[in-house]
């Protein structure tokens, strides 16, 4: 199937083996003329994904979604963008990205932001975001790849801060020097197969850490954790109250 999608303001031609990818990309489909590049997924590439995820529970069309993400991630750095594993939300139109290995509690944490801070919080994407670097600004963009909760809204926002999450017994947050948290960020960034794109990603990472403050949050799953991350990231005083979500 042939169709176009628009991710992080880039129009991309897609050729898929299964129609499921067309449906998966529904909110991101585009009718624009022209495109930045073509992503064509072959049966061989789907088979490669099967080798990584041999569980028969994964359907061929799911594996195609993974292959498509990999191919897009390989190309993005050549357009000053890169993929990162993290959950992004906005508060008053400024975006904040929470990143950590799977299972740390990113989804729970952003859900608590919604619970205690209500409608001012909007979830951009719960799992895979694109960061774009332009002039002196970093933007976070949503993608259709949004983890098991599928939280995603096709939008972008200026990135105001990054928060690396760690589980802890006490809630503590501190701003970190860029050099201190590179390994944690490198671990959550998608690394392209080609050296040129990987080199470009390192250059974009350099811009990112120079332009955006990075915090390390050790937290449990309480309201106090939200208060800490909210105050550090937004600079506002926390006056949350529980709302129904």
């Amino acid at each position: 199937m042939n169709f176009k999608i628009k991710l992080a303001d880039l129009t991309i031609d897609v050729q898929s083996q299964y129609p499921a990818l067309y449906d998966f990309c529904e909110k991101y489909r585009s009718e624009d003329e022209g495109s930045a590049f073509l992503v064509s997924i072959s049966p061989r590439e789907i088979a490669e994904e099967r080798k990584i995820m041999p569980d028969p529970e994964f359907s061929e069309s799911y594996l195609e979604e993974c292959a498509a993400l990999r191919k897009i991630g390989d190309r993005l750095p050549l357009y000053n963008r890169f993929l990162i594993h993290g959950a992004a939300i906005t508060f008053e139109d400024r975006a904040y990205l929470f990143t950590a290995p799977s299972g740390t509690g990113k989804s729970s944490h952003i859900l608590m932001w919604k619970k205690y801070l209500g409608e001012k919080v909007d979830i951009v994407n719960g799992d895979k975001c694109i960061l774009s670097v332009a002039e002196d600004e970093i933007y976070v963009h949503s993608t259709p790849w949004a983890g098991k909760e599928k939280w995603n809204r096709n939008r972008k926002a200026k990135l105001g801060g990054i928060c690396i999450l760690r589980r802890g017994r006490e809630n503590m947050i501190s701003r970190r020097k860029p050099g201190e948290i590179l390994p944690e960020l490198v671990e959550q960034i998608f690394w392209p197969k080609q050296a040129e794109a990987a080199g470009r990603t390192l250059e974009l990472l350099d811009s990112l850490v120079n332009l955006v403050p990075v915090y390390l949050l050790e937290c449990d799953r309480s309201e106090d954790a939200v208060r800490r991350s909210f105050e550090a990231l937004t600079g506002y005083r926390y006056e949350g109250k529980e709302t129904k979500i």
Binding site: K177, G179, L182, A195, L202
Partner: peptide, 15 residues
Amino acid sequence: VIREVAGQIVAVATG
């Protein structure tokens, strides 16, 4: 691939 990031010399591996 080697680049300077945040004032540090960093290598990552591809391919």
